[in-house]
């Protein structure tokens, strides 16, 4: 019997490392050469089918990478089951930013959160500033998943999300609540009904 599980995933990382492109590749298998900088937080969903018949539905929050929006990030990674922290292999400074995000997640996010470190723009290996060894070593020390991807070519994108899906607990009740209202999964439904009740009471014009 196949199971459907639902998890909340948040993308973090410096501006212009390719978070939105990574999601676009994963969700729609598309790539835009010129993407506007994300000023906000986009919500998308994508389902991954595992070999054992389990399907994992990711509710993905793609957040703005710009420094000035940093204070809003906690709103999006709270309750997240997994986080993909992205850096750009052609910008060594972006790995430093990634380290900061990882420290923050380890300190403030749900302790059971699964963190994947993702070196994007592997198609630009010629301009590489971050070696695979350096990143991999760091990931091992911190107990993170790690991979290099190219949103442009698609290399490694599906793999990293599938790897996360495999690593997520298949028995535990997912903590994700966000977006439950639009999710069809049974796990999300309780949230819907609760909300509906809330909405019904607040709809009552008589606050008596």
């Amino acid at each position: 019997m196949s199971k459907q599980l639902q998890f909340k995933l948040v993308l973090l990382g410096e501006s212009a490392v390719g978070k939105s492109s990574l999601v676009l590749r994963f969700v729609k298998d598309q790539f835009d050469d010129y993407r506007e900088s994300t000023i906000g937080a986009a919500f998308l969903t994508q389902t991954v089918a595992l070999d054992d018949g389990t399907t994992v539905k990711f509710e993905i929050w793609d957040t703005a990478g710009q420094e000035r929006y940093k204070s809003l990030a906690p709103m999006y990674y709270r309750n997240a089951n997994c986080a993909v922290v992205v850096y750009d292999i052609t910008q060594s400074s972006s790995l430093d930013k990634a380290r900061n995000w990882i420290r923050e997640l380890q300190r403030q996010a749900d302790p059971s959160i699964i963190i994947a470190l993702c070196g994007n723009k592997s198609d630009l290996a010629a301009r590489r500033q971050v070696t695979q060894e350096e990143a991999q070593k760091y990931a091992e020390e911190e107990g993170l998943m790690w991979a290099e991807t190219s949103a442009k070519s698609g290399d490694g994108v599906a793999d990293i999300f599938t790897a996360i899906a495999k690593k997520l607990p298949t028995t535990a009740q997912p903590a994700a609540r966000a977006g439950a209202a639009r999710a069809g999964a049974a796990t999300g439904r309780a949230g819907v009904d609760l909300n509906k009740q809330n909405a019904a009471t607040s709809n009552d014009p008589c606050n008596c």
Binding site: N79, R177, G179, A181, V192, N195, K196
Partner: peptide, 11 residues
Amino acid sequence: CAGLPGDEIAD
């Protein structure tokens, strides 16, 4: 609130 929308359909 941010990151935790309520009943989107009803809204």
